[in-house]
């Protein structure tokens, strides 16, 4: 059988087994026009949604069938331009890639459609993403290198060197992780997961010679140490970049490069190794003391209350792990980092 016939047969088979289902979904849609409205409001739409549709189809249907003034960004329709990220029931979603079936599995048949950040809304789903781009730029998101202006060869990565980027190069800057990050929401200075993933992508590139990028992200208050490790970014990324993994790798790079300054965050990480070496288990009080140094005083009021409730075990009261010699031997032989 020729290939064309074979494909037609397979398509028919697929069509006969693949059932398209339809169900009613009620949408509450965020509406706001910064030029005209004092406050945002929500409009209700009820639609029959098929199992074949993606979230972008719903946005299109709102605009085309209900209200031509409804505004949102869209371009490639193929999960590559990063323009159409919005929030469905508070979850960042790349509208052109996310199937409505998955959304119904997650949230049932009542959905709220909002822009990535309601406080940054300009018109409906369109937001001012300026903070995102400013932070992304701060990560020096390009290869820094002295190169010949008229090179004769391309400066290519080997497959192994490309693998070391660990998919960080797949980021499409859609902002889904940035506006899902609870720290970005609270702390305006925090660079956010996308900027850190970009910093990792270029730090891990063997062609890069930038000296300051790693130091730039190693700031207290805005840098990699303020991540709360909630994994929201990893969960929402439409390209599986896994930004929190890259944040961890930036932490590792800081120690490996010797650029990790001694501060409460770095000592907190190192303190675990010290404690494990000594006890197998953690000495919680000792860890806070080692991390905070003189800053320990601010913890005293709560510590006293905890002590009175039997929640603080003194160093001599800690039950060490059994076979501690094994742990100590492994710490000695497996340690790869220095501080």
């Amino acid at each position: 059988m020729n290939l064309k016939l074979e494909l037609t047969k397979r398509k028919k088979e697929l069509m006969s087994t693949h059932k398209i289902t339809t169900q009613k979904v009620n949408f509450k849609v965020f509406r706001f026009n910064a030029d005209e409205d004092y406050l945002p409001y929500y409009e209700d739409y009820s639609m029959d949604v098929t199992s074949e549709e993606v979230v972008l189809d719903i946005l299109n249907r709102i605009k085309w069938d209900h209200d031509g003034s409804f505004s949102y960004r869209r371009s490639c329709r193929h999960g590559i331009c990063g323009a159409c990220a919005i929030k469905v029931n508070g979850r960042s979603t790349l509208a052109c890639k996310e199937s409505m079936t998955t959304m119904i599995e997650y949230f049932g048949n009542e959905m709220t459609i909002e822009p990535l950040s309601t406080k940054r809304a300009i018109k409906d789903m369109i937001i001012d993403k300026g903070d995102f781009w400013k932070k992304h730029e701060a990560a020096t998101p390009y290869v820094v290198d002295e190169i010949d202006e008229t090179p004769e060869l391309e400066n290519l990565l080997s497959p192994a060197e490309a693998d070391a980027l660990n998919d960080a190069d797949l980021c499409i800057q859609c902002g889904a992780c940035h506006y899902a990050c609870p720290v970005v929401e609270i702390n305006e200075d925090f660079m956010g997961p996308a900027a850190f993933a970009a910093a990792y992508r270029f730090e891990a590139d063997v062609r890069d010679g930038d000296e300051s990028r790693l130091t730039d992200v190693n700031q207290m208050g805005s840098g990699v140490w303020d991540c709360v490790k909630c994994f929201e970014c990893a969960e929402v990324c439409p390209k599986d970049v896994n930004p929190i993994e890259k944040i961890g790798q930036l932490h590792n790079m800081l120690f490996q490069s010797g650029k990790a300054e001694s501060n409460v965050a770095t000592r907190h990480a190192v303190g675990f190794e010290k404690s494990i070496k000594k006890n197998g288990v953690l000495d919680e009080g000792g860890l806070v003391l080692y991390s905070e140094m003189a800053g320990i005083v601010k913890h005293v009021p709560v510590a006293l209350k905890m002590f009175s409730k039997g929640k603080i075990v003194p160093p001599w009261g800690i039950t060490k792990s059994q076979n501690l010699d094994e742990i100590q031997k492994l710490v000695k032989s497996s340690t790869t980092a220095k501080f």
């Binding site: 490790k229 590792n252 990480a269 303190g271 675990f272």
Partner: peptide
Amino acid sequence: SCCGASHLQDYD
């Protein structure tokens, strides 16, 4: 032993 609490992971 301690699991590292995701902080030892940052170091080593």
